[in-house]
Amino acid sequence: MTLIDLANPTRFLALTARVLPWLAGATVILLAVGLYQSALAPDDYQQGATVKIMFIHVPNAWLSMFVWGVMSIASLGTLVWRHPLADVAAKAAAPIGAAFTFLALLTGSLWGRPMWGTYWEWDARLTSVLILFLMYLGLMALWRAVDDPSRAARAAAVLTLVGAINLPIIKFSVDWWNTLHQPASVMRMGGSTLDKSFLIPLLVMAIAFTLLFATLHIAAMRNEILRRRVRSLQMMQASRVAFSSESSAGSRAENASNEAGAA
């Protein structure tokens, strides 16, 4: 199976119909295992039980960036390789990415609450994620603003790629801006210093969330393909029946005028 096979929407629908239940099943199992392990993980000596938010927060933060990566590749697919399903993939990924980013923000602010005393701190990491969230919303607004999906696709692809180049620059600027104003960030969770009892559940959760994204993404792509089919069927209906009713409408008006004339 290659990308070429997937280029045909009908084949894509048939194939994913078989894959999707397995993927969903694997997601549920891994999520259950991950959550169980997270519950068993010991409390942090400084942060107490709140550290467990990390098991949700980190996978969401990871996916918030990963999804933009997926959309960037799909955008290349739209602009360079003209892969017919690329813009479907890009469009379907945006709301899911926005949702993961939102969850990363939400869990981040809940996590920060006991430490900062406020729900929101202009912490460098959270702020970067907030900007990423805004860019997701902007992208979704762009998809919504244009009625014709193929026209919206190119604009969205350009914006996605520009975003992919700009995101590191934004991240760097925000870090610099943040250190300018406050010397040390409260949240410092270097991956390498993590204890193994944290690391394994975190990895399981990260994989589980990635599978969750794959499941949701494929399901959303299927919806988008079907939505576009409905759209083209509607357009065909608008034009096709018009031709066949052209003559009948004309004669109906003719009859009506004859009756009126007789009256």
Binding site: E246, S247, A249, G250, A253, E254, A256, S257, G261
Partner: peptide, 11 residues
Amino acid sequence: AGQDMVGGLMR
């Protein structure tokens, strides 16, 4: 056909 229809409607 549409022009005929308009004619009918006007009459």
